[in-house]
């Protein structure tokens, strides 16, 4: 018998014929793919391809209008219980109007973690992402790069099994971008499954184990990174890699 206190891993995550319709437009259609239990997937595609939408569907912020999204270990867990074992970092992080530390503590408050535990975990996370000196600052006055690292520290205390990142560096300078990429690697080393969107090819080459390529709401490729970057299967991906199909 398995120990009931240790939750079964959520992953893999399987999407079957997932679609998202808005009005008479198919914003996503016929997406069938699986995210295995480890690795770093980069979601790529031109602007408006549906990358953000796909990740919000996976994370449970939206419901697909067609098809199904199944967590292998999800069982009968409700949306909230599922989301508490995942985390998402948005393009522009939404930070609460409180101190940096209080922001990191917030998900733990929701989980009913005791004050002392919260403080300890938050301080450890702030330390890990180089934010200790800023712990008492109002989160909203931090720089863009610091805010994004704070969002990562907040995700860190949730000990997510999977971390979704939606173009987390698109508004950052190179140094801040590097810090975010390092943070992503830190999560990866701790065993967190990474699903990240980006339209920065250099970044994708640096980070991707495999690539999901979307174009106009369709899944055109899901292949290992080397394959995708050296021998893309679709004409659109080839054009995208040449830089001809960006926006």
């Amino acid at each position: 018998m398995s120990d009931l206190r240790v939750p079964v891993g959520l992953l893999p995550l399987a999407l079957r014929e997932v679609g998202f319709r808005h009005g008479d437009q198919d914003l996503l259609k016929g997406i069938t793919l699986q995210f295995g239990s480890s690795g770093k997937t980069l979601v790529m595609g031109p602007n408006g391809a549906g990358k953000s939408l796909l990740m919000r569907l996976c994370h449970g912020l939206l419901r697909p209008t067609e098809g199904s999204i199944r967590w292998h270990g999800g069982g009968r867990l409700g949306g909230q219980a599922l989301r508490r074992r995942q985390a998402m970092v948005f393009q522009r992080p939404v930070l609460l109007r409180r101190s940096a530390r209080a922001n990191v503590e917030y998900p733990l408050v929701l989980q009913g973690v005791s004050r002392r535990q919260r403080r300890r975990q938050a301080d450890a996370a702030l330390e890990r992402f180089g934010l200790s000196a800023l712990a008492g600052r109002p989160a909203r006055v931090l720089s863009g790069g610091e805010q994004q690292r704070l969002a990562l520290a907040r995700a860190w205390v949730m000990r997510p099994e999977i971390l979704f990142l939606d173009e987390p560096t698109s508004a950052l300078d190179p140094a801040a971008t590097k810090a975010v990429e390092d943070a992503v690697l830190t999560f990866h080393e701790e065993g967190t499954r990474i699903v990240m969107s980006s339209h920065n090819l250099g970044q994708a080459r640096r980070l991707a184990d495999d690539v999901v390529f979307l174009c106009r709401g369709r899944l055109l490729e899901h292949s290992p990174a080397e394959t995708f970057f050296t021998a893309p299967a679709s004409a659109e991906a080839a054009a995208f890699l040449r830089g001809d199909l960006v926006w």
């Binding site: 994370h59 912020l61 985390a87 998402m88 948005f90 929701l110 949730m158």
Partner: peptide, 11 residues
């Protein structure tokens, strides 16, 4: 501004 982020954090 907060809806998606709070939902994501489990609120």
């Amino acid at each position: 501004e907060y809806a998606e982020q709070l939902k994501s954090l489990g609120a």
